[in-house]
Computed example of a mutant assay.
Amino acid sequence: MRKRSQPWIQRKSRFIIAAIAALGAVITAYLAITAFADVSAACPTEGCDKVLSSPYAVVFGLPLALFGFLAYVAMGVFAVAPWLINPETKKSQRRTVEDWTWRFLLIGSVAMGVFSAYLMYIMVFEIQSFCLYCLASAICALALLGLTLAGQHWEDIGQVIFTGIIVAFITFVGSLAIYSPIHSPTAETETSSGYAISTTSTPDSIALAQHLRERGIKMYGAFWCDFCQRQKELFGREAAEELDYVECDENGVNPNPAACQAAGIQSYPSWEIDGELQRGLIPLNELADLSGYTGSRDFQAN
């Protein structure tokens, strides 16, 4: 009896899974680097900043993209692991590794697919903005799930379905638990007004903020913008209250989106200094230089 030929998708599945995992790792690595470097990701849409600066983009105090990068790396390792074993001399060992890595690929792809779907829901219905990088990562995660299911001849389909349901349930419940603090009454109050500033201003940082206001220098931002929060943290709580701050998101406190639109604001934070826009988080010494501040410069907030 002639042996049934193996479908091409099953012959090439591990290679394709490794390639997609590599692409996902590149995307998430870039987002993690930009997060650690405190810079905005290059994106054709403004929504990227809103999504990547939202509280949903941080898990356990670290960028969510970092965990995505580790997940993609793990999937890539599971995909290529059998290739590291010589099939001629260690055939039995290679077969064992293939079996176990398929199980890990199944568990990992289901978890990543469910979590990515949940994040897409958050992006569309909670944050209400579009992030090209997030969408690309979600497509990669769902592609890994599809390839894992179609790329292997699963002998016990019932076991695959049972495993998938259990992993999906745990992932979904875990996702709700991770982000539950964001939906608490305290967090919802903070979200609309910006998070409380934890640092204390020095007399010099207060003097700089007063100088900026006197010069008519404005800071444009949004309550959800992580970089805006960090900019205020540099000033400290007392000095930040002296700033001429313009809230650009209509859902924030005392918003003035019309002023932001008239000023041509495209990213947050943005500073309007002498009729010119300076974009991004700016160190206080640099703000002092740009504004002509001549006082002392002990700006280190505590």
Rank of each mutant, 00 (worst) to 15 (best):
R4K: 14
I17N: 02
L23E: 08
V26K: 13
T28P: 02
A29M: 15
L31D: 13
L31H: 06
A32W: 11
A32Q: 03
T34Q: 13
A41G: 11
C43N: 00
D49V: 14
V51P: 00
V51T: 04
A57Q: 01
V59H: 04
L66I: 15
A71M: 11
I85F: 09
I85C: 07
T89K: 15
E98Y: 12
G113F: 04
G113L: 03
V124M: 11
C131L: 06
Y133P: 06
S137L: 07
A138N: 09
L145Q: 06
L147S: 11
G151Y: 01
G151P: 03
H153N: 12
W154Q: 03
D156K: 14
V160Q: 02
G164D: 00
I165R: 00
F169Y: 14
S184F: 08
P185A: 01
T189N: 15
E190I: 10
S192V: 13
T199G: 08
A207M: 00
R213P: 12
G221K: 08
F223A: 07
F223C: 08
W224A: 04
C225P: 12
A239S: 07
V246K: 00
E250G: 10
N251K: 12
N256F: 11
C260M: 03
A263E: 02
S267K: 10
P269I: 08
S270Y: 04
E272G: 07
D274S: 10
Q278I: 15
G280W: 05
G280E: 08
L281P: 11
L287Q: 04
S291H: 03
Y293W: 00
